[in-house]
Design a protein around this nucleic acid. Sequence first.
RNA 1: GCGAGUGUAGUUCAAUGGUAGAACGUCAGCCUUCCAAGCUGAAUAUGCCGGUUCGAUCCCGGUCACUCGCUCCA
Length: 494
Amino acid sequence: MKDIVSLCKRRGFIFAASDIYGGLNGFWDYGPLGVELKNNLRDRWWKDMVITPPIGPDGSPIEILGVDSAIIQNPRCWEASGHVGGFCDPMVDCRESKKRYRADHVFVLVPKDGEGFSFAFDKDDEDDVIEKRLQKLAKGKKVEDFERTMLDQIDPAEFGEIIGPDVKNPGTLTEPRQFNMMFHTFVGATAGDENKAYLRPETCAGIFLNYKNVLDSNRAKVPFGIAQVGKAFRNEVTPRNFVFRSREFEQMELEWFCEEDEVPMWFDFWLEERTRFWESVGIPKSELHFLNVPKEDLAHYSSRTIDVEYRFPFSAPDFDELEGIAHRGCFDLTQHQEFSGTKLEYFDQANNRRFLPHVIEPSTGLTRGVLALICQAYTVDESRPSGVYLDFKPSMAPKKAAILPLTAKEDHVPTAQKLYMDLREDYNVDLDIKQNIGKRYARQDEIGTPFCFTIDNETSKDQSVTVRHRNTMEQERVSLDNVKAFMKEHISKA
RNA sequence: GCGAGUGUAGUUCAAUGGUAGAACGUCAGCCUUCCAAGCUGAAUAUGCCGGUUCGAUCCCGGUCACUCGCUCCA
């Protein structure tokens, strides 16, 4: 992983944000090649979703519409989604056991006579565990001698008298701290609670907020989908693993609205489609893993979620989440309907009935996808000068080809320039004239350019150039006239 | 947020209480007819802030970042 991070910096894929100031934990910038790669992945997703959506089970193309909603929305929408209420749980750390507890998940036995210490327990602790611990530490007191109170109901000033759940001495618990995952900001020039707003922690809310607008303006009929790509922000406790968990990231989310009884069919449909997508951009199925998220780990709104996981270098041999496909039920529309007071029911004219559609959400991290593409492409090959090459699918590669005059002299350069000007109309290509040919091949290997066209003495004789293939380093001759056709053939099918 | 470790050119590594050196890469020139070749030259570093000291890259403190473990990940 270290090597990948260093290659990303060295060649201009991904830099630490504010690098010259020493960086900022959890934020990353995309360099010249990184932004191309990210755009390629994003554009492919957008094309596969919105421009040419898949063929549905009935044989005709399904309907998906795109939106691009604001990052900052009315803060009430985050109350509806549960982000404001549900995720501000005060947490308490134990200085000795190094554990962290939710203050509302810890209860405390406070002595009724006010003498001696109080004892904290996890809310799930069984009675016999509690009794045993009291026997050891409470100097003869029994459960009946205590009053049971939740930790978040106790004044932190009295924490000094409490013995934490996993320790033997009092005074190790810190004050409760709020851990709100949402970044907040203020709308308007004055900073106060009345104009507090949030940076969206996920893009899907903007879809639900526009669900009615899209329906009304586009004659959409259930089942249909709304797609969005955009930035989201989460104040992660621990940004880790390069761009995998960062505080500012980019999501590609589809909300698929359908009838409740068709949920199982569409769920399977999207699972299959999304798997196909990842394969098509270069992630082999062998490196993917499908995690049926266990009930106890499901989000509050979801009754079924499958995580599409990828074998990242930092997780290997295990996998980490790349995409989540969730059945969100009608939770979001119900909540927004209630909080906004706007009716969001769908009217099915054919059957003359109103209902709130259920939602299947394939939600993926664009920036995580970029990381997966880079990790997957990273190929060590000691036999070649660069020692490594990036095995991108040609369609994903930031640069599709490099045009290299064999020498900087003679008539190689003008021919190369002409070819470059011609190719760049259709493809993102490089023209590189300086230094010997080996160095230039090596450089292109490191950034994953699939093809290099080399102009040599023979070119002026027979109007042909050498194509050098990145993965095999093999060469073949192609006539100048056929270079475009060659590109078209090799890039469109991959 | 806690604990442990780390921090020297783009990268990988040296060295030192007296102000840093190499290799590779990068750039320029020469030379080169297909894989980081050769020759000549050049630019570039002690994360940041403070303290101790005559003097700190080195010792101390803070901070920032990275790695690992915990925690978190709706």
